[in-house]
Write a protein that binds this DNA or RNA. Structure first.
Length: 279
DNA sequence: AGCCAATGTCTACTTACCTCA
DNA sequence: GGTGAGGTAAGTAGACATTGG
């Protein structure tokens, strides 16, 4: 169908059942493979599939080779609040097993060091969970990095964490939350866009229904003496082709619509004006 | 080659803390 | 000063891929 979304809703967005191909460069990381399996992130290389989403573009994932040496830093926190972390909670339950399993060996070591510091400083009880606030500099650098690639491979994570004096886990969490926020915003945009499309289609539907009614009425009137049902004032004659058109069939929507018929002005045959002497 | 456990990463959802009006 | 809303760091569960035995 010839529905032109770009003009209909004027949002600058593209809606369509399109076939999208992968924009992602090759990455040897497992995450890439995972993304290919994940329905929300999947961008298969050699396949096309219908899509309605307005996902992030420019999301190329480069296998950047940061210096990435494996030395372990004691990641100091950037703000006074930072001496506490969620790790203190994790270690207070049996989930510490999973928690440690989630961490690389390096991270485990860092976590353990951190937890030691935490336990020294934590005077609010074993379950206290103070909120970390990232500094402006940290946030800015994370944002910058996110613009380049919305997911990180382990090396990138390590390098970024070192650069920011954060734990790799914190960098990972920040990226996870950032992706979630992006997706949420995009969903809101999509929702607004679809609402507008719905309104447009509803209006169009209403207009077409009205047109159908008028055409039906006209057809009915043609089966009976026309002068009894159709006042002369409702008929107009096309000066060029000398045909008669009804009022109201087009006037309801003066704007050209994507749903307009190929020949928007219907020509109605009027036996009374169709004689050779009519014009 | 096939199986399985361990591990790592992801999303989605939730919780808890902090800030600000 | 108290409070509710919003933002966000972090926890959790579940799914899936990879890897090594």
């Amino acid at each position: 169908m010839g529905f032109d979304d770009h003009h209909a809703c004027n949002t600058g967005l593209v809606l369509g059942l399109g076939l999208t191909a992968s924009q992602e460069s090759t990455s040897p990381t497992p995450q890439k493979a995972h993304r290919q399996m994940n329905p929300l992130l999947r961008k298969p290389n050699n396949s096309f599939e219908p899509s309605l989403t307005l996902g992030l573009c420019g999301n190329n994932f480069h296998e950047e080779d940061h210096q990435g040496n494996n030395s372990i830093d004691l990641y100091r926190q950037g703000s006074p609040h930072n001496s506490h972390s969620a790790v203190s909670n994790s270690f207070s339950s049996g989930r510490v097993v999973k928690r440690e399993r989630d961490l690389s060996s390096e991270e485990v070591e860092v976590e353990k060091v951190s937890s030691r510091v935490i336990s020294d400083e934590d005077e609010d009880g074993p379950n206290a969970r103070k909120k970390l606030r990232l500094t402006k500099e940290q946030s800015a650098l994370l944002e910058e990095s996110f613009k380049q690639h919305s997911t990180l491979n382990p090396k990138q994570k390590q390098a970024l964490a070192r650069q920011l004096s954060l734990r790799p886990r914190q960098v990972e969490v920040w990226f996870q939350n950032r992706r979630a926020r992006t997706k949420l915003k995009q969903t809101e945009v999509d929702c607004e866009f679809l609402k507008k499309c719905c309104e447009t289609l509803t209006d169009e539907n209403r207009r077409l229904q009205k047109e159908v009614q008028e055409l039906k009425a006209l057809k009915l009137s043609q089966q009976q003496p026309l002068f009894m049902h159709m006042p002369a004032a409702t008929l107009t004659m096309c000066p060029s082709c000398e045909r008669i058109g009804g009022v109201g069939s087009e006037g309801a929507n003066p704007n050209k619509s994507p749903f307009s018929m190929a020949h928007p002005k219907p020509h109605f045959y009027n036996p009374f004006t169709n004689s050779s002497a009519a014009c």
